[in-house]
């Protein structure tokens, strides 16, 4: 069996990877709550934004914070532009056409990042090292891991604060709960959806920039995190943002436990299997109510 410090280490590692899953899941959840669009392009939007940061860093030799801001700005514009130019103009806005639309954007951005930036693996570095470690209460953690955990936590708090305590956040929640009533009160649901695409894109981009140093930067950077983030969102129930965060951590924990006890090869398979099983029992995820259409 494991001793106490091993358990703590396992939990910390899970929080580390779980943070990335949670952020990607949150990014998808923000859009889904506002517009019921499951955004399959989330990963590629984030990857493309990270490439922008990479270009600013390496080609223009700018300091990190400049690249970071430029990248987030780009992510925001990409998000709102996609909503304004495509999502809003769908002829027949069913869930199926929304999935088609976001898969379309996914393909465009995936192809474009290979075309413009090349398909080779690139090293993307943050100011926090993956190899230098600190020890906190017996648990060894890399600077990058610590930064990831802290940054995600801060970001989650920011999102919470934004939704609960700002006027725009309130408008977003009102529109999500009852778009007709919100519209009567002067809140344009179009604007809310547009904003949600922008914010979501920023959240995704931050997740990608925290993840890129762990592996390398290439057009398929976010495939795995997207899938896991999506799975986390589904596990927690798309409609509940705290549920999504929880889903992200749980998913990472399950993966790590399985990787530790059985085999690393199958850890993704098991995570997916568990999600399918959870969905079978609770079709709308763990933390949200199943919705039945009224007739």
């Amino acid at each position: 069996m494991m001793d106490f410090s091993e358990i703590v280490t396992l939990i910390v590692r899970s929080v580390e990877t779980g943070s990335i899953y949670a952020l990607v899941g949150l990014a998808m959840g923000i859009i889904y709550k506002a517009s019921e669009v499951p955004n399959f392009a989330q990963g590629e939007m984030a990857t493309f934004s990270t490439f922008i940061a990479f270009m600013v860093l390496t080609v223009h030799g700018a300091p990190f914070y400049v690249a970071f801001v430029v990248s987030l700005l780009f992510a925001y514009i990409l998000g709102i532009a996609f909503e304004f130019l495509c999502v809003r103009r769908a002829k027949n806005p069913t869930i199926l056409s929304m999935i088609i639309l976001t898969i379309g954007l996914q393909m465009v951005l995936y192809g474009l990042s290979g075309w413009v930036f090349g398909t080779e693996q690139r090293a993307f570095r943050l100011p926090f090292s993956q190899f230098e470690t600190v020890e906190i209460g017996g648990v060894v953690i890399s600077h990058l891991g610590l930064a990831t955990i802290i940054a995600s936590f801060v970001l989650m708090c920011l999102i919470y604060w934004f939704l609960e305590h700002t006027k725009t956040g309130l408008a977003m929640r009102a529109s999500q709960q009852n778009s007709m009533a919100a519209r009567i009160n002067g809140i344009s649901s179009n604007r809310v959806v547009n904003l949600s695409f922008g914010i979501s894109s920023i959240v995704g981009a931050i997740a990608a920039m925290l993840f890129a140093p762990i592996i390398t930067l290439s057009p398929d950077l976010m495939w795995d995190p997207l899938l896991k983030g999506f799975a986390a969102a589904v596990l927690g129930g798309f409609a509940s943002l705290p549920g999504i965060v929880f889903g992200g951590y749980i998913l990472a924990l399950i993966e790590n436990l399985f990787g530790l006890w059985f085999s690393l090869e199958y850890k993704s398979v098991v995570a997916m299997g568990i999600i399918v099983l959870v969905l079978y029992i609770k079709p709308s995820g763990l933390f949200s109510k199943h919705y039945q259409r009224k007739v």
Partner: peptide, 19 residues
């Protein structure tokens, strides 16, 4: 120029939904 077919297919998907 690999990757371009992805761009084209993706654009066609978006056009299908929009047009």
């Amino acid at each position: 120029q690999t990757g371009v077919t992805w761009v084209i297919t993706g654009i066609v998907l978006i056009l299908v939904v929009v047009l």
